[in-house]
C-alpha cells in the first residue's frame, strides 16, 4: 500500500486480525452472507483445486517410480505418495492455489468496494461492513480450505492409484491398505489443523489488503497482488511453524 515498512504492515495486519476476533464473534451474525461466501470460496474453488490435486498425485507417483524401482521398492510407492500428499503436498499446494484464486479475488473485490465507497455505503446503510464483508470471508476461507484440502487429498490419492496402474497392477483395496497401514493420527490431524491456519491467513490478508486499499483503481490491483504474495509467503511460514510445533508435540 503505502511505503510502509514491513513491521508497520505486520502490525496493522495483526491489529486487523485482532479486530476480526473482537467483532467476529459478537452479534449480529451475517449468516446468509457467510453461507454465500462459503459457496463462492469453497464450492466454486473445487474444480481448480481438484485438477491441481489430480495432477499432483499423478506426477508424484510417476516421478517417484523410477527412483523407487532402483531400490526395488515399488511396493512402497503408495505409502510414500500417500504420506507425502496427506502430510505436506495436499495442504501446501491447495493452500497456494487457494491463495492465488481466493486471496486475489477477495483483495480485488474489497479493494474496489473501498474505492467506489461501497464499504462506506454499507456503513451508512446500517451494516457493519467489517462483519458483513471481512468476518464472513475470513470465516469462509478458514473453514473451507480444510474441506478443499481433504477433497484434494482424496483426488490426488486416486490419481496416484491411477498412476501406479499405468505401469503395473494394484487393486484399490491394496492401495488403500498400504496407505492406511502406515498412516497415523500424527500424520492426519496436524495436516488438517494447519489448513485452518492457511485458510485464515489467506482470508485475513486478502481482506486486510482490500479493506485498506485507497489509491483508486491502481490500489485495487496492488491489493489483489500483494494479497496473493503475502498470503502465499505466510502459508510457507505457517507450514514451517506447523512442522516445528508438531515436532515439539511429538507427532513426527
Amino acid at each position: 500500500m503505502f511505503e510502509n515498512s514491513l513491521l508497520d504492515e505486520t502490525g496493522a495486519t495483526a491489529q486487523f486480525a485482532g479486530r476480526f476476533f473482537r467483532e467476529g464473534f459478537r452479534p449480529r451474525y451475517e449468516v446468509a452472507e457467510f453461507l454465500h461466501q462459503c459457496y463462492v470460496v469453497g464450492y466454486q474453488s473445487l474444480p481448480m483445486v481438484g485438477i491441481t490435486g489430480f495432477i499432483m498425485g499423478m506426477v508424484l507417483t510417476l516421478q517417484s517410480r523410477p527412483t523407487m524401482a532402483q531400490f526395488g521398492a515399488e511396493s512402497w510407492i503408495p505409502t510414500m505418495v500417500g504420506l507425502t500428499i496427506i502430510r505436506e503436498m495436499g495442504p501446501i499446494i491447495t493452500g497456494l492455489i487457494f491463495a492465488g484464486k481466493i486471496g486475489s479475488s477477495i483483495g480485488a473485490e474489497l479493494g474496489s468496494m473501498r474505492v467506489t465507497e461501497q464499504i462506506d455505503a454499507m456503513e451508512v446503510s446500517g451494516t457493519n461492513p467489517f462483519k458483513y464483508l471481512v468476518v464472513t470471508r475470513v470465516l469462509a476461507t478458514t473453514l473451507m480450505l480444510p474441506v478443499l484440502t481433504i477433497l484434494a487429498d482424496v483426488i490426488g490419492l486416486y490419481a496416484s492409484y491411477l498412476g501406479i496402474n499405468l505401469k503395473g497392477v494394484t487393486t484399490l483395496a491394496l492401495f488403500v491398505n498400504n496407505i492406511f497401514s502406515s498412516l497415523t493420527f500424527g500424520d492426519v490431524l496436524p495436516a488438517v489443523i494447519k489448513t485452518f491456519f492457511f485458510g485464515f491467513a489467506v482470508g485475513i490478508i486478502g481482506c486486510y489488503k482490500g479493506y485498506h486499499s485507497n489509491k483508486g483503481t491502481e490500489g485495487v490491483g496492488q491489493a489483489a497482488n500483494s494479497a496473493v504474495v503475502v498470503s502465499s509467503l505466510l502459508i510457507f511460514v505457517l507450514d514451517l511453524l506447523a512442522v516445528q510445533i508438531t515436532g515439539l508435540l511429538g507427532f513426527n
Binding site: 468496494m113 467506489t116 465507497e117 461501497q118 462506506d120 455505503a121 446500517g126 451494516t127
Partner: peptide, 29 residues
C-alpha cells in the same frame, strides 16, 4: 443513519447485486 440519506459521489452501488437487491439492502439492514 436510517433517517439521514447519503448519496455517494461514486454512487457506491453494490456491483454484485441487482438494482432491486441494492435498494432492498439498506431497507432490510
Amino acid at each position: 443513519r436510517a433517517r439521514v440519506g447519503f448519496l455517494f459521489q461514486s454512487n457506491a452501488l453494490y456491483d454484485s447485486m441487482t438494482v432491486r437487491e441494492n435498494l432492498l439492502f439498506p431497507l432490510r439492514r
